[in-house]
């Protein structure tokens, strides 16, 4: 079973890297980009066979290590 964790800065937190990407895209002529947020994608290979148990364990991983919930939010996909 695989889990895919997407970690992004929380909505209220200014993302300076996203802003720099947006600026660079504008420089390439992409004038219609009004906002860019960038984050991290972490893929996990798991022994687990029960999707709900896997999701709960990955959530604990996010809270304990993968995300800093002071400034980051996370989303989990199980496949």
């Amino acid at each position: 079973m695989k889990a895919r964790v997407t970690i992004m800065l929380k909505d209220g937190v200014l993302d300076p890297q996203g802003e720099a990407i947006r600026h660079a895209l504008g420089g390439l002529g992409h004038k219609g980009v009004t906002g860019v947020r960038q984050g991290k994608l972490i893929e996990l290979d798991l022994d687990a066979t029960d999707p709900e148990a896997a999701r709960a364990e990955v959530a604990r991983m996010c809270e304990g290590l993968l995300a800093n919930t002071v400034i980051e939010k996370y989303a989990i996909e199980i496949a």
């Binding site: 200014l14 300076p16 800093n68 002071v70 400034i71």
Partner: peptide, 17 residues
């Protein structure tokens, strides 16, 4: 120390990058 939870808040990438 912030990651340990011994101090509040977090430190992220400098605004000027």
């Amino acid at each position: 120390l912030t990651e340990l939870g011994l101090l509040p808040g977090a430190l992220m990438r400098n605004a000027g990058l």
